[in-house]
């Protein structure tokens, strides 16, 4: 079926069957590869995107449910104030190792800072729980979010 998607401020017409996860439309149809496949069961967070500003797992978000919604991916984060601050903090602190989960980490971190501008370590641990990092970069993720909060406050 033909579906009209609004992604990173642009409209896209895609042909996808109902039940197709948004993840695979973004990656295979639109060929935007910053959003990652890690588990397919919403258990790792690597596929996190924003749907009307809220982080969602795109592997468990179906294409027929997102028509008309504003979808934002990692590729557009630099254009947002919070996204740019998080990316700056990530580079300052060298948060990444293999990097494969980091798009999803950043999408969740932006979601957290959008609703809580000064999160405590406990707030971060609670909000970011669903984003797995097999390299275990967690303590830099925690520090990166707090650094981004500082950047935004300045």
């Amino acid at each position: 079926m033909a579906i009209s998607l609004k992604l990173n401020g642009k409209s896209h017409e895609v042909d996808a069957e109902p039940g197709t996860p948004l993840l695979w439309v973004i990656r295979d149809e639109l060929k935007m590869t910053g959003t990652k496949f890690g588990c397919g069961v919403a258990s790792c967070g690597a596929c996190t995107v924003h749907l009307d500003g809220e982080p969602v797992r795109s592997c468990q978000t179906y294409i027929e449910d997102v028509e008309g919604a504003e979808i934002t991916t990692i590729e557009a984060m630099a254009d947002t104030k919070i996204g740019a601050a998080v990316q700056q903090a990530w580079v300052e602190l060298d948060v990444v190792q293999c990097g494969y989960c980091q798009s999803g980490q950043i999408m969740s971190a932006v979601g957290l800072l959008s609703e809580n501008p000064k999160p405590s370590a406990e707030d971060i641990d609670s909000y970011m729980y669903g984003n797995a990092c097999r390299c275990a970069t967690y303590q830099r993720i925690r520090a990166g979010i707090q650094r981004a909060a500082e950047i935004l406050e300045a």
Binding site: M32, T33, G34, F37, T73, E75, M77, Q87, V91, G99
Partner: peptide
């Protein structure tokens, strides 16, 4: 490799 891994442009085999 920090910047490319934070902005979605890093290319993995996937």
């Amino acid at each position: 490799d920090s910047e490319i891994k934070g902005n979605g442009t890093a290319m993995y085999a996937m």
